[in-house]
């Protein structure tokens, strides 16, 4: 892997703006907090290349993320924006920032725990209810409103909630 050149002040500023774009399906977190904005490079005056990585390979939100990033950069006077999708290294839930986790929990989505060796195994570890804080929660379905979440129910407060699965 080539060591990237240090970011210029313009790149830093544009990256902050692109990173502040909200996730279309989880609008409480930004692309930067989710860890899907991999790189932003100014290739030439007025020409910027952005790298996004999908949470899941089939994530339908990716196209809308790319369109939002393009719009934000166009608004900054960058006419030529290319958004590329990169798969390697694969995104993991460990890429979600502490602030991102806090916002997920605040919105009723249990954030992912640390990753186990084999993804699904970690699901059996205690997941805390984002509503009442109890760890007495039960898995209802491995797949919920989006591929990245599982559906659980809290046995203490009886509320169902989404859990961002470890990946």
């Amino acid at each position: 892997m080539v060591t990237p050149a240090p970011a210029t002040p313009l790149e830093t500023r544009l990256r902050e703006l692109a990173g502040a774009v909200p996730d279309p399906e989880l609008p409480m977190v930004t692309l930067a907090e989710l860890g899907v904005l991999r790189a932003l490079r100014v290739m030439a005056p007025g020409r910027v290349e952005v790298e996004l990585t999908p949470t899941y390979t089939g994530c339908p939100a990716l196209e809308s993320m790319a369109a939002d990033v393009e719009r934000v950069l166009h608004d900054q006077g960058i006419p030529d924006v290319t958004v590329r999708t990169v798969l390697s290294p694969p995104w993991t839930t460990d890429a979600i920032s502490a602030e991102g986790r806090r916002k997920l929990a605040e919105s009723g989505i249990a954030p992912p725990g640390p990753r186990g060796a084999g993804g699904p195994v970690a699901v059996d570890l205690a997941v805390r209810c984002p509503h009442c804080g109890s760890t007495d929660t039960k898995l209802l379905s491995r797949f919920s409103s989006t591929a990245c979440k599982a559906l659980r129910r809290c046995e203490a407060c009886r509320e169902p909630f989404d859990h961002f699965k470890e990946l």
Binding site: Y56, T57, L87, W91, G119, P120, R142, A147
Partner: peptide, 21 residues
């Protein structure tokens, strides 16, 4: 297809887990 496989294997682990259960 190594990059795709590295990414997808983690998703497929959930598919297999679902099928086994």
């Amino acid at each position: 297809f190594a990059p795709l496989a590295a990414k997808a294997v983690k998703e497929v682990a959930y598919h297999r887990d679902h099928a086994e259960h």
